[in-house]
Design a binder for these strands. Structure first.
Lengths: 199, 199, 199, 199
DNA sequence: TATGAATGAGCATTCATTCAT
DNA sequence: TATGAATGAATGCTCATTCAT
């Protein structure tokens, strides 16, 4: 393995000397982990990669987080919470959500918890964390805000549709901005339909 | 690693003694690869697993396909084609597609190319293949059948929505059959809307 | 590693807040080391275990004793002295010795130097210490008390026989108390024979 | 870690080119394991040491024996059988046993299963194997040959006494040949006493 | 053509120890 | 004096792949 992702070896911050500072080291590992997991997913990232990106010794990862699994939980899964996104005008929520997953941040953006979770979905070890994170961090909070019948099922459909858009963005392709606009325009009413229960 | 997936070790076809028959060996590897990649995804499957399921020596995988990557390309990505699914009554295509990704049993007994692709999507090495496969095997054939403006974008939305449903099924949770019915009912009109261009 | 031995984590003395008291800290480490080495042997015990049991930082072990090896030497090997056991009625010494190694409870609550030495005997680093400790702390004092020819050889035989019993107790098996009585009865005359020179 | 034991790095056989021969490779690993485990015990020996001594790649150790533990079981524990030693004239068995453990073979002799077991006794992972090996490979066969009461207890005493002599030889010291003779002379009657039931 | 033995780089994790504070 | 952060080598083990037969 080399660096954290393809060729991205030297864009690591590594700015400050930050030595002998536990909190800073911990945070550096956490930041590196967020980036790496977002870009490559749980299985593809090695503890060594994360440590290298954080500029620390690989052993410190285990010292601070117990294991790679624990680090993933702390960096991504445990604090996964998209509910802030849900607050605000209910009538435009569909569009806001579509924009969120299609936002123009480059695919390899530093930290996108949804993307990290998705890219780690093939990992056996993250299975439970994943399910819990998405349910607790998105589906449930959304369902609580929905009115009408089948609130949970509709919330799950919103979630899965967004995951699909995410796959679209990350895998199917880097559409240009113009396309994004169009896609948002097409997608927003569908999502809004689920949200309003009129879908 | 243990066999290919949970307990499915001995239900491998292994039809004939098929020794010293290059074509049959090749096909056996291909079949085993389809099953394994579908069930566990690219990274989770070992060359040994595939070879064991095919009843051949692991070295033959490399002999015939150059590498694990080459095998994936040949077994899944290169011949990925969902266009048969698109033929038939256009008016009910949305529902048929929703049913396809939500059905409990995959289309072939052990082989679901869409699932295989999705489960392998976190692999760096399969990234390129994925894009091409889904574009050429689903999005483009669908777009050709669509009328009205934005045909390609609408086809992409159908594709990404289906991928989202697939993630829903495989990761977020094993909904019960009853739920599936409801989800199909909710999802079908949305997909049909994209298809008809009335979204 | 988990504490020092099976479940015994919290029965550590940890008598006083004892902070900033070099002598007390030193002694706490020493006590913890005796217990840990007795229970698990040199290799199985980590510096961290000892430090945790003593309630101090692992680095202090090195600070005070130079190394894990130095700590073992000071805690166990250098002050190994079983001569008190040898005082008393010579005629019943054989039985007393057999009882000593076969008793269920070690002589000190958590500290049995003979057991500590034995459990550490597989360690390359303790080899030399062991030889010296047993010779100087048991064999020689015993030989000085023996009369007749071959005093040293007879003392060595007593020593090695006791070590054998110890292995019996710790490795071969947990005999029940009843068995212990029988074994003491069988073993005592043999040892007494070596002691009296009538073997 | 360096080689297998102190300085013994280059006395590895490594004579034949023995490449691409599974049986020979397996045996080479087995032989190396016997030597290493005998000299240093289970915990002290690394898979890499054994592989280096056998002149093979470390991965082959796992290929052939599954794990280090499996290798120990196959090399030492599973075929531990001292019963051949027990056949022959019962009247001189005590002396033969004493001679066996005190035999003039150098301490680091290539393979001594009893010594290997003893040196591995501190390992948590070998605990069960050890107990079983000594019970099944020595104590039980001996007990079956004994007459009179307490046959099993007496056999166990013989076993533990021999283990004590082994510790004597390996730890307490390399006595000279003359000493050995004397020790055998002193020990033999004791052992014979247990054997005959007159102890 | 097919086999399976061998390879070597890779993995997460643990350790005693050292060094800056 | 004491702390605890950092270190780096070592651990058992797995992997896709290659090579000799």
């Amino acid at each position: 393995m080399f660096g954290c992702s393809s060729g991205k070896t030297d864009d690591a911050p590594e700015t400050a000397p930050r030595s002998r500072n536990a909190a800073a080291t911990r945070q550096a590992i956490l930041d590196a982990a967020k980036t790496c997991f977002t870009q490559d997913g749980y299985e593809q990232v090695g503890v060594r990669d994360i440590a290298a990106r954080a500029g620390v010794d690989p052993a410190l990862v285990n010292r601070y987080f117990g294991s790679k699994e624990g680090l993933f939980a702390e960096a991504i899964a445990r604090k996964f919470d998209l509910s802030p996104l849900l607050d605000g005008d209910r009538a435009t929520l569909g569009r806001r959500l579509a924009e969120y997953v299609l936002q123009k941040k480059p695919v390899g953006a530093n930290y996108d918890p949804l993307m990290a979770l998705l890219r780690s979905s093939s990992s056996e070890v993250c299975g439970g964390m994943l399910r819990g994170a998405i349910q607790n961090g998105f589906v449930r909070p959304l369902a609580e805000r929905l009115e009408g019948p089948d609130a949970l099922a509709r919330a799950e459909l919103v979630g899965s549709t967004l995951l699909g858009l995410l796959v679209h963005r990350s895998v199917i392709g880097g559409a240009e901005e113009a396309d994004n606009e169009r896609i948002v325009a097409l997608m927003a009413p569908m999502l809004q339909g689920f949200i309003d229960g009129t879908g």
